[in-house]
Each structure stands twice: as structure tokens, then as C-alpha cells.
Computed example of a mutant assay.
Amino acid sequence: MLPHAVRLSFALLVALVMALPAAAFDTQARAAYVTDLKTGTVLLNKNADQPLPPASMSKLMTLYVAFEAIREGRLSLDEKLPVSQHAMSYGGSTMFLDTTDRVRVEDLLRGIIVLSGNDACAVIAEALSPDGSEAGFARFMTMRAQKMGMTNSTFANSNGWPAAGHRMSMRDLALLARRLIEDFPEYYPMFAETEFKFDGRAPQNTQNRNPLLALGIGADGLKTGHTQAAGYGLVGSARQGDRRIVFVISGLNSSAQRAQEAEAIVSWAFRQFVENTVVKGGTEVLRADVWLGDAPSVGLVAEQDLTMLLPVLSAEEVKAEVIYDGPIQAPVAQGDRLGTLIVKPEGMQEVEVPLIAAASVARGGFVTRIKTVSGLLLTRLQQGPEGAL
């Protein structure tokens, strides 16, 4: 008997906190993406893969490249960098640098994170560019982003200044935020700083524009952005307990709307979802028939715990499906991967967990083979002349 794909659908009972179902968040943003970092659950996806003008949110890529250079010894926090005429020429949000300055890298980093300095980005870019130009650095940024999996990102400059072809998707920005948080924990606290006074310049321009940092809701980053083409946007992150979310919104009409939307998203993401272990590792999900084995079946167990973020519900059934090729051919070794459990929460992304053999099943001997063949012949006779093995 040849194995064939077997699909079995059923429901997993998951006891959750008593509450109302979580409604989808109806964002006013042109594009948005919200993800839970611990479980990888995507909570909201609106035009998340559409390349859009990212404005100053693209400064996060310049920061990532700078942090890498520091870690690799190609740049140091105490190193002082010159300011070119090109860097000084930038308008918009700046550190008010001029060509007489030599600025510490650490000050430039804070100038980018807290003050959103376009000039500071250009100084970093020219220092790290393969050819000494900001355009060369932008090409390097694009290549580095592609290697990181940011397939909808193309950079024309280091700071998000409006330019043809300078684009990022919300999913790419979320991926970048996650990498900054996880890859550079020593520098990430800079993103929570609410003020940076550089050299006494422009005392009216010392505040971080992130509207969530002072609200006491666990927000600790990362970057705002605004241009006429991009609208108002924010790459944000917040931590409450052992959960952390990253969210990206873009295309809002005002800074006030951005602040309201960002706070509402954080509240929704933490209050309307609960983390739950849907299946524990080693739990038998089902038994599968074994062909020509010394046992007629083998248990399929979850290879690992499956912890998911689910909408807060009363005791609820989560739809699930098991796929495996059956009957399973003997011999079977304990731990062999034999199938997949697919959990399908309503309105959310599916999650897969490998299923493995709970025990070994040896190949049956002569008696087993005779019994199996005899059973098949009997079944065929009962089915009549059209029956088939």
C-alpha cells in the first residue's frame, strides 16, 4: 500500500481568560503593521508590504549600519567626525551643525535618535560610505537591507529626505526595529531618551518627538517621521511584563492623530490578546496507522510547546489540522518527524508545529506481513471485483 497524504481537521480546546473577543483594529493609517516579538504573531497588517516614502523613519537603517560599524571596530563612540558642506546644507530637523564642527559619534547618534538630525545622518553616512559620499552610503544601505530580508526597501539618502525611489514597507521597518532591539541591546536605551541638549545649540529643539515615551505605557522607542508625501508616521515599541510589541504606522494627517493612533494601538495590542500554550511538547495529538510494523499505530506528538498570542476569549475552540503521509511505513524511530500540526486561529495567521513519533516501531516479521496481506485480501473480497489494494 502506497502512503498518501492524510489531512485530519479538529478543534483544540484552549482555556482563555473570560472576556469579549478582540475586534480587529480599524486604523486610520495609510499603512500599518503590528507584531508581538515573543511569539512572532502578526496582530495587524494593512498594506504592510507596500513600499512607501518612510521619511525620517528610514534613519533607523543608518543607525543600524552605524551600530554594526562600532561593533566591528570601524567606528568608535568617541571618534570625532568632520561636517561637510553637503551635510550642513540639509534643512528640516537638524543638529545645526556647520563645517567648523568635529562631532563625537555618540553625539551624532543621539542627534539622530532624539533630534532626528538630517545633518547628523549625512555626517555618519559620509564617514562610512565606500566612496565617501552619502549616495554611496545609500547604495550600501540598500544592499545591507536586502541581506537582512528587507526586500521592499530602497534608499536614496541616509535620512529620509524626499527623493525619488526612497521607499520602505511597514513590514521592513518592523523587521529593522526588531533587529535594533535584539542585535544592539547596549545602544537601544538611547531610543527612550526624551531630551538631548547638544552643545547648547537650539534650546527649543531638544525634545524627542516620540509622543509615547512620557505616557508610562512601556514605550521605549523608536522613531517618528514626517514629510508631505509620507504623512505622519512612527516606528514604535512598547514592553509590558514579558511581552513586547513593535508597530509601524504611516500616512496619518497630523502629529496629534499619530499620537492618538499610536497610543490606541499599544492599548489594543496588550489588552485584547493573551499568550497561551495551545499544545505542550510531547503531547499526543493523534495516532497514525503503521504499515507492516510490529505495532499497528504510533502516536504523533508535538515536537515542542506551541505558545501563541490569541484574542482574549472565553473557553474557545481553536481550529487545527494534522497533515502526514499515511499509513506510515515501518520501521519508525522515536523522534522521527512524521507530520505537521497546523493551528488556525480565526482571523489570524496560521502556525505550524512539527509532529514526531512518540515511540519506535520496528518492521514486523513474517507473521505480521502474512496477517497484513491476508487482511487486505479479505477486504478486497468484501469490496467485490472492483475493490483494489
Rank of each mutant, 00 (worst) to 15 (best):
D101M: 13
T277R: 11
R201V: 11
R209G: 02
A5S: 14
V246R: 02
A164H: 13
A156Q: 12
T41K: 01
I113W: 00
A238H: 08
V285Q: 10
H166N: 14
E386S: 15
A87D: 05
L180A: 11
Y90V: 00
L341K: 03
I112L: 09
S58L: 05
L60W: 01
E79P: 12
A362V: 03
Y187P: 06
A163C: 10
N152P: 04
L252W: 10
G293F: 00
L52R: 03
K46C: 05
A219H: 06
A87K: 00
W268I: 06
L378V: 15
M1G: 12
F247E: 00
F270P: 06
A357M: 07
L43H: 08
L313E: 10
P354L: 07
H86M: 11
G282L: 07
V332T: 07
V114E: 08
G282Y: 06
E261L: 05
T94M: 05
T194E: 15
A19N: 11
A288H: 01
D98K: 08
V123N: 05
M18G: 09
Q85I: 07
W291A: 12
I342G: 01
R287M: 10
T372Q: 12
A11Y: 04
L212Y: 06
G117W: 04
D172K: 01
R363N: 04
N45H: 08
A358L: 01
F247S: 01
A357I: 06
G326I: 03
Q85K: 05
S297H: 02
V298D: 05
R369M: 15
I328C: 06
M148F: 05
T39G: 11
L378P: 08
D172P: 08
L286E: 10
E263S: 13
M57R: 05
V34R: 00
M141G: 01
P82D: 03
K344A: 09
L310I: 12
G335P: 09
V34I: 13
R369K: 14
D119T: 01
G40C: 12
F273A: 14
K223Y: 03
M348P: 12
Q257T: 13
A262W: 00
P3Y: 01
E68W: 01
G236C: 11
S56C: 08
V123K: 01
T35D: 03
G231K: 04
T39E: 08
G92P: 06
P189N: 14
I113S: 07
V14W: 00
M308Y: 03
S158P: 03
V343C: 09
N152H: 14
Y188F: 15
V285C: 04
S93R: 00
G293Q: 00
A164D: 15
L378N: 15
R7C: 13
R179I: 12
V266N: 02
L215D: 02
L176G: 03
E352P: 04
G216Q: 10
D98W: 02
E275F: 04
S360C: 07
F140M: 15
A163V: 10
T151C: 11
S9D: 14
R102Y: 11
V353D: 05
T283P: 02
L389C: 10
